[in-house]
Design a protein around this nucleic acid. Structure first.
Length: 425
DNA sequence: TCTGGGGTCCTAGGACCC
DNA sequence: TCTGGGGTCCTAGGACCC
């Protein structure tokens, strides 16, 4: 029996999260900004209709947004992460198998659900909205790529009312023809441009290309996309979260940073964050890389960027050890006299904690201090009483370099002091 | 004044080994 | 004068995703 995949995708997710607790914004255009209030990364439909482009720097369209009465928010990941978890809980409650694909998307296996996939999808959509306040779209098809495509159709075609089952469609080719080639999952802007030059403008035309031709020009990844469009599944269902292979923590600064001591604080802070993520997946790292760069948009200013990768003699998740390595690396790439915009750390060579390689040169495990109880204590304090309840002195206390978030909404669902107040008169 | 952050996979080419 | 061949590992860069 052919599989039936559903892609459930939250509509304009961050904008919808901001609306969930502010019903008066329901008809107003809403946009959400990236970290540091830099670019526009989410738009409600009304904002899209105004022509507000995705990824546009905020300072370039600020006036236009004000003129049109657009509600603007800094990103509030505490809120989005929590609402995402609520949506995913509804899905896992009703679907036999769920693969969480991103903060706002999940694939569900609807093969053989009672009453048919489309009716099931409609009930799911209504329930998610009733229980979380987040509107979703549902696309159903025999492969993931086609489910993505069906989802897009469901979202854009009002007559679908949020749900579209491609496998039940009388004319699926028409839907493929309607889908521009660059909107196919797996075909990015680069390949789309090349394809259009060759007269391949939509998913139907792409599907008709020869396998060898596609493989030669778009590698095995392009071939998978082609086959999926023909209804042959190439992307399997992932069961359970997959461990990360690299962990990155980086940020742009709220203001240009010129001093080494501030960069060292930032490096220590990002290392702390990365190490927390590392321990959360019960892993250790054997390599830490530190980078910093000036503002590349400022063409007139002197530019410098540096990276330094530090192999660790023994793989670890001990924050102080990692901070020491990161700060030494930062000192070695810092050059005086520049205005820095951003820095970050990347952990790579990740291994499960219990099967790590040991170094011949390091102390044998029995003679090494056991850092684990300390890090566990730090993690549990921070998880119980909030991030940075216990922090490392190396990351500073004033943090003058930290990012800008001037229009952040309350963290309604994760901080008691910021819970929604309702007054009944 | 102000331009995000965090990932994955694939391939080509060089280093190195026998 | 003649200058192999095959394999593995690593890295950088490109392309894609959200």
């Amino acid at each position: 029996m052919p599989k039936s995949y559903a892609l459930i995708d939250c509509n304009n997710f961050y904008a919808s999260c901001e609306r969930a607790f502010r019903p008066e914004l329901r008809k107003r255009p809403v946009v959400v900004l990236s970290n540091n209030d830099g670019c526009i990364i989410a738009r409600s439909n009304e904002a899209k209709d105004l022509g507000v482009p995705m990824g546009k720097p905020y300072f370039k369209c600020r006036n236009m947004l004000e003129r049109n009465g657009v509600a603007v928010f800094s990103s509030n990941y505490a809120l989005y992460g929590d609402l995402s978890a609520r949506v995913m809980r509804v899905l896992t409650r009703f679907c036999p198998e769920v693969e969480i694909y991103s903060i706002d998307e999940a694939f569900c296996d609807l093969t053989g659900v009672p009453g048919g996939a489309e009716a099931f999808g409609r009930r799911l959509r209504a329930t998610v909205f009733r229980w979380t306040g987040i509107p979703v779209s549902v696309g159903i098809a025999p492969t993931k790529t086609l489910a993505k495509l069906a989802n897009r159709f469901a979202k854009k075609q009002p007559r679908c009312r949020g749900v579209f089952d491609l496998s039940a469609s009388p004319d699926p080719d028409r839907v493929l023809k309607w889908t521009e080639v660059g909107d196919v999952w797996g075909i990015g802007p680069r390949h789309a441009r090349r394809l259009r030059k060759l007269g391949v403008n939509n998913a139907l035309e792409f599907r008709g290309l020869k396998r060898d031709w596609v493989k030669k020009r778009m590698t095995i990844a392009g071939l998978h996309t082609l086959l999926e469009l023909r209804g042959w599944p190439c992307f399997d269902f992932a069961d359970g979260p997959v461990d990360k292979k690299t962990i990155v923590s980086s940020r742009s600064f709220g203001h240009p940073v010129t001093r080494l001591d501030h960069l060292l604080e930032a490096a220590a802070q990002y290392t702390t964050r990365a190490a927390e993520k590392l321990r959360r997946q019960n892993a250790v790292t054997s390599n830490i890389l530190v980078f910093l760069q000036t503002n590349t948009f400022k063409l007139g200013e002197p530019q410098h960027s540096g990276t330094r990768s530090v192999p660790l003699p023994v793989a670890t998740s001990h924050t102080p050890t990692l901070i020491r390595a990161a700060c030494a690396a930062m000192e070695s790439i810092f050059k005086d006299g520049y205005s820095y915009k951003k820095c970050g750390v990347m952990l790579s060579g990740l291994e499960p904690e219990h099967s790590r390689w040991l170094s011949l040169l390091a102390l044998p495990p029995a003679h090494r201090p056991d850092h684990k109880p300390l890090m566990q204590a730090v993690d549990s304090c921070n998880s119980r009483w909030g991030r940075d309840t216990v922090s490392f002195a190396a990351s500073g206390t004033r943090r003058s370099w930290k990012m800008k978030r001037e229009m952040m909404s309350p963290r309604y669902t994760t901080v008691w002091d910021e819970i929604l107040r309702v007054t009944v008169e």
